[in-house]
Amino acid sequence: MLIIDCPYCGRRPEIEFTHGGEAHLVRPPQPAELSDQDWAAFLYMRSNTKGIYAERWRHARGCGQFFNALRDTTTDHFLSTYKSGTPRPVVNTTPSEEGHS
């Protein structure tokens, strides 16, 4: 079980969280103006990154808040968690010497 650093509550066990898919996908403000292809891309296309991935989590059984996280999908180590609506932080992408949960 992972430890996830909720930006509101601090480090808490994964069992309190739900995963919310890829982060930084913004719902188009005028969906009607999108082509079928662009709308399909918004609905279905995800980057599925091997490596550092920006994803959403919700502290569903905690403060209830959605937030974003940078997680290395090859190690399950989190590099950063940050509030929804704030930009993706720049992190050192070289792997750390040893894991910090």
């Binding site: 509550c9 808490r12 059984r61 905690g62 403060c63 209830g64």
Partner: peptide, 10 residues
């Protein structure tokens, strides 16, 4: 105080 889980209950 916090919301959390107790086995399968919130």
């Amino acid at each position: 105080c916090t919301r959390t889980v107790l086995a399968k209950a919130e």
